[in-house]
Measured scan of single mutants.
Amino acid sequence: MADYSSLTVVQLKDLLTKRNLSVGGLKNELVQRLIKDDEESKGESEVSP
């Protein structure tokens, strides 16, 4: 898992935009949104054959 907390808000928003996720909120919220997306993506890849 990436260390999103070391990134700037601009970098976080860029990552969120690329994933089609909301870019609104405080830095901590942006980090949590990326972590949640990582976990959901990981779960999907494990279920797929």
Score class of each variant (00 low, 15 high):
Met1Ser: 12
Met1Tyr: 00
Met1Ile: 04
Ala2Gln: 14
Ala2Pro: 07
Ala2Phe: 15
Ala2Val: 15
Ala2His: 12
Ala2Tyr: 15
Ala2Met: 15
Asp3Cys: 06
Asp3His: 08
Asp3Met: 15
Asp3Ile: 06
Asp3Leu: 08
Asp3Asn: 14
Tyr4Ala: 00
Tyr4Glu: 00
Tyr4Ser: 02
Ser5Gln: 10
Ser5Arg: 09
Ser5Asp: 12
Ser5Phe: 12
Ser5Lys: 09
Ser5Leu: 09
Ser5Val: 06
Ser6Pro: 04
Ser6Phe: 06
Ser6Arg: 07
Leu7Met: 15
Leu7Ile: 02
Leu7Cys: 09
Leu7Arg: 04
Leu7Ser: 04
Thr8Val: 01
Thr8Leu: 02
Thr8Asp: 07
Thr8Asn: 11
Thr8Tyr: 00
Val9Ala: 08
Val9Trp: 06
Val9Asn: 01
Val9Arg: 07
Val9Ser: 07
Val9Gln: 07
Val10Phe: 08
Val10Glu: 15
Val10Trp: 06
Val10Cys: 15
Val10Ile: 11
Gln11Thr: 05
Gln11Ile: 02
Gln11Asn: 07
Gln11Ala: 07
Leu12His: 00
Leu12Tyr: 01
Leu12Met: 04
Leu12Asn: 04
Lys13Gly: 03
Lys13Tyr: 07
Lys13Ile: 05
Lys13Trp: 04
Asp14Gln: 14
Asp14His: 13
Leu15His: 03
Leu15Ile: 15
Leu15Ser: 03
Leu15Trp: 02
Leu15Phe: 03
Leu15Met: 09
Leu16Lys: 02
Leu16Gln: 01
Thr17Ile: 12
Thr17Phe: 14
Thr17Asp: 07
Thr17Val: 12
Thr17Cys: 11
Thr17Arg: 12
Lys18Arg: 11
Lys18Val: 07
Arg19Thr: 02
Arg19Phe: 00
Arg19Ser: 02
Asn20Phe: 00
Asn20Trp: 02
Asn20Tyr: 03
Asn20Ser: 08
Asn20Gln: 09
Leu21Tyr: 02
Leu21Glu: 04
Leu21Asn: 04
Leu21Asp: 06
Leu21Ser: 02
Leu21Gln: 08
Leu21Pro: 01
Leu21Arg: 03
Ser22Tyr: 05
Ser22Cys: 13
Ser22Glu: 10
Ser22Pro: 15
Ser22His: 14
Val23Ile: 13
Val23Asn: 07
Val23Gln: 10
Val23Gly: 10
Val23Pro: 11
Gly24Val: 07
Gly24Met: 12
Gly24Trp: 13
Gly25Glu: 02
Gly25Asp: 01
Gly25Ala: 02
Gly25Lys: 01
Gly25Tyr: 00
Gly25Pro: 01
Leu26Met: 12
Leu26Glu: 15
Leu26Val: 14
Leu26Arg: 14
Leu26Ser: 13
Leu26Gly: 15
Leu26Asn: 13
Leu26Ile: 07
Leu26Pro: 12
Leu26Trp: 10
Lys27Cys: 00
Lys27Met: 03
Lys27Val: 02
Asn28Pro: 14
Asn28Cys: 05
Asn28Tyr: 15
Asn28Thr: 11
Glu29Pro: 01
Glu29Gln: 07
Glu29Tyr: 00
Glu29Trp: 00
Glu29Ala: 06
Leu30Tyr: 03
Leu30Val: 02
Leu30His: 03
Leu30Pro: 05
Leu30Lys: 04
Leu30Arg: 05
Val31Thr: 06
Val31Asp: 01
Val31Met: 06
Val31Ile: 08
Val31Arg: 07
Gln32Tyr: 05
Gln32Asn: 03
Gln32Met: 08
Arg33His: 05
Arg33Ala: 06
Arg33Thr: 02
Arg33Gly: 03
Arg33Leu: 02
Arg33Cys: 03
Leu34Asp: 02
Leu34Phe: 01
Leu34Met: 07
Leu34Glu: 01
Leu34Val: 04
Leu34Thr: 02
Leu34Pro: 02
Ile35Trp: 09
Ile35His: 08
Ile35Ala: 08
Ile35Thr: 12
Lys36Leu: 09
Lys36Ala: 13
Lys36Asn: 12
Lys36Ile: 07
Asp37Glu: 08
Asp37Lys: 06
Asp37Arg: 03
Asp37Trp: 09
Asp37Ala: 13
Asp38Asn: 03
Asp38Met: 03
Glu39Ser: 11
Glu39Tyr: 06
Glu39Trp: 10
Glu39Ile: 06
Glu39His: 08
Glu40Phe: 06
Glu40Thr: 13
Glu40His: 09
Glu40Met: 15
Ser41Ala: 11
Ser41Lys: 12
Ser41Glu: 09
Lys42Leu: 13
Lys42Trp: 08
Gly43Val: 13
Gly43Lys: 14
Gly43Tyr: 13
Gly43Phe: 15
Gly43Gln: 09
Glu44Ser: 13
Glu44Gln: 13
Glu44Gly: 11
Glu44Lys: 06
Glu44Leu: 11
Glu44Ala: 12
Ser45Leu: 12
Ser45Lys: 10
Ser45Tyr: 05
Ser45Thr: 12
Ser45Cys: 09
Ser45Pro: 15
Ser45Trp: 06
Ser45Asp: 12
Ser45Ile: 12
Glu46Arg: 09
Glu46Thr: 09
Glu46Asn: 09
Glu46Gly: 15
Val47Ala: 11
Val47Met: 14
Val47Cys: 10
Val47Phe: 08
Val47Asn: 15
Val47Ile: 13
Ser48His: 04
Ser48Gly: 07
Ser48Ile: 07
Pro49Leu: 09
Pro49Ser: 02
